[in-house]
Design a protein around this nucleic acid. Sequence first.
DNA 1: ATGTAATTGTGTAGTAGCTACACAATTGAT
DNA 2: ATCAATTGTGTAGCTACTACACAATTACAT
Lengths: 234, 234
Amino acid sequence: MPYIHTHRILVALDCIIFGFDGEGLNLLLVKRNFEPEIGKWSLMGGFLNEGENLEDAAHRIVYDLTGLDNNYLEQFQTFGAINRDPVERTISVAYYALVNIEDQDLNAIRSHNASWISLSKKPKLIFDHDRMVEEALNRLRTKAALNPVGFELLPVKFTIPQLQKLYEAIYDTKLDRRNFSRKVLSTKLLVGTGEKDMGSQTKKGQLYTLNAPEYIRQQKGNFGFMPELIMAED
Amino acid sequence: MPYIHTHRILVALDCIIFGFDGEGLNLLLVKRNFEPEIGKWSLMGGFLNEGENLEDAAHRIVYDLTGLDNNYLEQFQTFGAINRDPVERTISVAYYALVNIEDQDLNAIRSHNASWISLSKKPKLIFDHDRMVEEALNRLRTKAALNPVGFELLPVKFTIPQLQKLYEAIYDTKLDRRNFSRKVLSTKLLVGTGEKDMGSQTKKGQLYTLNAPEYIRQQKGNFGFMPELIMAED
DNA sequence: ATGTAATTGTGTAGTAGCTACACAATTGAT
DNA sequence: ATCAATTGTGTAGCTACTACACAATTACAT
């Protein structure tokens, strides 16, 4: 027997998908070829299906667009202003995702008419999506200062300077190379592979990978991963 | 024209209402005299109405139960497991509120069959409400370490030892009296009233009030109000 | 009024962590 | 081999937190 005299509404999910291209943070945005607001940019989103958990729906949406599962995904806020969707009353549960930009499924992205766009060149988005991006970035900043999470944005093997560039991008700041590397190594989160990076930009950095058990452990509690980076949220 | 082929569901809100009685944190809980789960304890909740913002609905729910508006209220998570409500698929947007236990409207509380219950003696709650309380406390702990928020739980005028007891309750720990008072006074958040507390417990503490503009300013950014209190979340 | 116990406020040494920078080691190219 | 670019280690200065000694204040009993 259902509840009576109650109002059922649409529940959407919107995903702020962050990627890192070695220089700055990027967003995976969709140029809409469907109504409403056709032709404009928006976040990737969708509706919650019958018999589907919120978490599962968020994963589904990210998977549809990138072909990737197992991404870092965190719910951060639910947006419920009355007129946020002009078509019909809809509340939207927002998640941000961190994905490795290199592992993406280019076909999936093309078929959704999506592109990676530098956060610094973000166009105006539809509805309240601009605010969602802003809040997602705030959340990512606080989270990454307390727990090691940014690594999800890098390839499996990476150099310390690459990791530093990532943190500089997240916080839009410059960090001291020497202190950064010392700090990161002291966490025991990284294990050297012995290999060197023969790739494009860096010349001599040793490649590291995550020490998976320690990584999982430190994601659980608040360890103050880089507490000095906590800064104004707004 | 509405969206088609989409699934509309119930949106509920649940409020974790924290109060402080001078010793420990308390929760305002409802002993249900209505179905489902009549006779069991639950959080105060309600459904989102047509034409009502999420924020407004949360304020309405807290106001109905306590007679108080203008409380500190923060949305912290949306719970959407398929079977979390056995009656019908419902997602619930959870907020926690900080209220001054002394200002409450006793009639409103009685008429809802609600009581203040010490967090340490919390009974088992219905549905997923236990987890909501757990997550709310985690969130409050992180929040109170980064920003001054706990003051909402105290009377307008309070002594520093009272404030210390509050922080000790939130973090379930003991703090050094001398360092605590120094730290708090250094924030410029408090202004002495000159008056003394002739009340019940404390004997000689000067009464302080909030320096409102500074309080509002420091709630906005992350200033690391008491960063040493950040601890494991789980 | 005066003394005593309880409580509150100030000083400070020790420690840990962050910042800034000097200097050494390593790598890749000529 | 030599040099330039890059990366790794040492360390002094600063700030903030901790722990505790000691001084000041208050409440209350006599």
